[in-house]
Design a protein around this nucleic acid. Structure first.
Lengths: 138, 138
DNA sequence: TTATAAATCTAGAACCTTTCTAAATTTATA
DNA sequence: TATAAATTTAGAAAGGTTCTAGATTTATAA
């Protein structure tokens, strides 16, 4: 396990979120699995360590973590939301063949947002769609 | 009315889509209203001109228009999809206070996608969130 | 400790958006 | 005018998320 509970608890507390069991394990899962899981993937993936976890708690938890700025919610298509604990700016690529979502490095700061003069600018999402190398072979 | 039916029908036919009543009026609505309506807004906004229109037809129609490359579907948050007939590359700004979505000009071609070497790159979505000037005053 | 209050969690109902289904209607073709 | 194909309709169904009320857990105070 590359992420220690102590560090998870520390970042929760620093963000002003009480480190309940659900929060610790959801954040830990997201920091250990960079594959942008859905709420359902989190729910099923955490059953072992949190047998009494409910779906509602998964939603409560990701909402709390997002509000605290610890994770981001990705609405990359019309289906299930995905969650990402990797906070530095980056883009998301989604393969239209296999559905996988992966991060890619790019400088969103280079974008020209001068057309938004007078607007407060907060978070940015860059989604790129296409076909991943594996799916191109098929 | 700034968009003539004849021109709408022409672009539908050029895109290989049969110009049924629903298709003509949905596309016309989207070309005349650049406010990124939802399916429900389309449904209610077209009641006058298409009294028998059903919700299912709205969905069928926007799906057909999107497949034909005439409009794009925006999944900018977890709620309702929005539709946009303005096809040149541009960004979308969404005000977190009033919920309005508006286009803004920016050069998405300037983005560094070199991290996606080996990937086929198709459509791109840039979503920026913040507060519009009107909402900042309140 | 023990009592009390506050926060969190649970299970399932409810809700909202979208898709599906089967029948009806419309449009094109012969 | 008849036949076939495409489109549309209304409502049911599905999928994902939020809500609700009660139970549990955690923090605070005596």
């Amino acid at each position: 396990m590359s992420v220690s509970n102590a560090r998870i608890i520390e970042s929760l507390e620093r963000a002003g979120v009480r480190p309940s069991g659900a929060r610790v394990h959801v954040l830990k899962y997201l920091e250990s699995n960079r594959n942008h899981p859905t709420a359902d993937t989190l729910f099923r993936g955490l059953k072992d360590v949190l047998p009494t976890l409910s779906r509602a708690s998964v939603y409560n938890t990701v909402t709390a973590l997002e509000s605290a700025g610890l994770i981001r919610r990705l609405n990359i298509d019309g289906g299930e939301a995905r969650y990402d604990a990797h906070m530095p700016d980056h883009g998301h690529f989604r393969c239209e063949a296999c559905g996988a979502v992966r991060d890619f490095d790019t400088d969103l700061g280079a974008l020209d947002l001068s057309a938004l003069d007078g607007y407060t600018v907060g978070k940015r999402d860059l989604f790129v769609f296409g076909k991943c190398p594996d799916c191109q072979k098929k």
